[in-house]
Design a protein around this nucleic acid. Structure first.
Lengths: 193, 193
DNA sequence: GTGCCGTTCACCCGTTCGGGGGGTGTGCGA
DNA sequence: TCGCACACCCCCCGAACGGGTGAACGGCAC
């Protein structure tokens, strides 16, 4: 499997510097060879691809990690983005996508597989989270910045009383006891940033 | 400016179906022409590129939006991702990146400019997060669950006054104006879950 | 055109919070 | 042994919060 991918990549003009059978070995080789791009599997013996990415970020800033995996999970994707992964290719995707990803990442960009990209946006349609109105989100966002009702009202050109109304509605929807609870829930559910 | 980009794109084998001078006009044309990819400026008369993306997502699911902009702001990037934008290219980037983005997006992928990609990961990896004590984190975590000082104290077997002491220290470290701000910051920096 | 929803504003009341003091004791490293 | 950070406790006071209730307006759907 590994051999196959390497040979195909080399046929496409990519220099394959090294290959590893497990996580720690991968980190070791990446540190030693300092490649531009590292193709990493999500599931591998020793430690996960995300863990590899995290260590690579600390050790070799010249190297960018691409996850080449069969798994498509939004939480993992977000975690990997945080870990510094800049490419996501599904194993079921056409090989052309893999080459494209390597090109893009080598040039410093970020490539996300179409299917995973759909997940990123699709999460917004998550039915488990109640829909907040634009105004409610505005209020929560500004409260999260440390503003009082009065200050939020000033920013949104509405009265502090109206701010309280929006907040109370949001608290009801989020089943929150306090404003702090509401903001925390909104953040956890990515309803505000 | 618009003309220049169009002509360069056409020289590269991209069919340019239409062009628009402002937001509403862009939405109109996109709806009518149903292109695979729409190159949209973030700042334009009428409405922002993100607003265009949102409307396009509702109107023409066949079309994918690329933001071609001079602005690089993490919050905007996240908002745009939610709006369904699948490409981010900075105007200062080499033209090759624009072509790459168009290719990737046309194939269903997501392209994010190197600089912006750095923002995505960089925001979380900031070492500027102050270290909170165990107690301070306990207090913030329970406040995030909607508890009052009194309730937090009950849970932690300390008085409400002590809860306030820990909270005040945490607020100072996080430079937060309110308890809500402190909890929001702690969540964003992953100091609590 | 009747109803629902989002948005806007206002009043009340009791509770809680934020900011400022003060203090005790423990443990850890200089 | 002397700080220093941490955890813990207490006071005050003005401001803000939460909870309840009521009302008005525009837009959009049926």
């Amino acid at each position: 499997m590994v051999e196959a991918v390497c040979s195909v990549l080399e046929q496409h003009g990519v220099d394959v510097l090294g290959r590893a059978a497990n996580g720690p070995e991968a980190v070791e080789q990446i540190e030693e060879l300092a490649p531009e791009v590292a193709l990493v599997d999500l599931r591998m013996p020793g430690c996960s691809g995300i863990e590899v990415a995290r260590r690579v970020a600390r050790v070799s800033s010249a190297t960018t990690v691409i996850l080449y995996t069969a798994v498509s999970d939004r939480a993992l994707l977000v975690e990997a983005l945080d870990a510094g992964v800049r490419g996501f290719v599904l194993k079921e995707a056409p090989l052309a996508d893999l080459f494209r990803a390597v090109d893009v990442v080598a040039a410093g960009g970020t490539y996300i597989d179409p299917v995973l990209a759909g997940l990123l946006a699709g999460a917004r349609t998550d039915a488990s989270s109640p829909a907040l109105t634009q105004r409610e989100r505005d209020v929560l966002r500004l409260l999260a910045e440390g503003m009082s009702n009065e200050e939020v009202g000033g920013r949104l050109y509405i009265s502090a009383e109206t701010v309280r109304t929006h907040l109370r509605k949001a608290m009801g929807k989020l089943r929150a006891e306090t404003r702090t609870h509401a903001v925390a829930e909104a953040l956890r559910r990515s309803l505000i940033a």
